[in-house]
């Protein structure tokens, strides 16, 4: 035993293990306060609309990719920010909370998930965190009822083919779908 302890690296390993065990136990210790989680669970609310433009799980994993791609198309290719359903303006329009009219206040949509995941967002240093005007009424998931997957794909193909989304107030005819449906 004495021989073992005399080796320097054994001492170092023992100290390291103790430190690790100590830190982990502090991290996972139950505290006896009312609120069992230290950071509040994210508060996913939308003020307008029944559904997001994409399913929640898709958005959770991919909203950053959509934003990265969209910022190139908006800034460099001149896409109309207001008509694009992935535009950050339209995200804010639906998701801004009614309490403080923002997505970055404490407990608000963007802020709560990002605080929980400990990922800093710098978007709203430049982008407005407050809604502007009313969101466009083109959300196909709201206006059209069943078959969301097919509808969404159709809408996207329509947009790619015609350059804009169809006007759902006036409706669209089968002629408009020519070339879109394959």
């Amino acid at each position: 035993m004495k021989n073992l302890l005399s080796k320097g690296w054994i001492k170092l390993a023992a100290a390291g293990t103790l430190l690790l065990v100590g830190v982990l136990s502090l991290a996972y210790a139950e505290d006896n306060t009312q609120d069992t989680s230290r950071v509040p669970m994210p508060n996913v609310t939308a003020v307008r609309g029944k559904q997001c433009v994409e399913p929640t799980e898709f958005m959770r994993k991919n909203h950053m990719k959509l934003l990265i791609h969209h910022r190139i198309s908006a800034v460099h290719h001149g896409d109309n920010q207001l008509a694009d359903k992935y535009s950050i303006i339209n995200c804010v329009n639906c998701h801004a909370s009614t309490r403080d009219n923002s997505v970055t206040g404490p407990g608000d949509f963007c802020q709560s998930c990002h605080a929980y995941a400990a990922v800093k967002i710098t978007c709203f240093e430049c982008h407005s965190s407050k809604p502007s005007g009313t969101p466009p009424s083109f959300h196909p998931l709201i206006s059209l009822g069943s078959g969301d997957k097919a509808t969404r794909a159709t809408m996207m193909r329509y947009q790619a083919y015609h350059g804009t989304l169809p006007n759902l107030q006036t409706g669209f005819s089968v002629k408009d779908l020519a070339g879109v449906m394959r």
Binding site: N80, I89, V92, S132
Partner: peptide, 24 residues
Amino acid sequence: QLAEVPRGQGCVESCTFCVQRIDA
């Protein structure tokens, strides 16, 4: 800041020929 014209600390800016209008 206006929603159509994002502006923030630390970046440089100049006249955009009202690009938010043109794109719309």
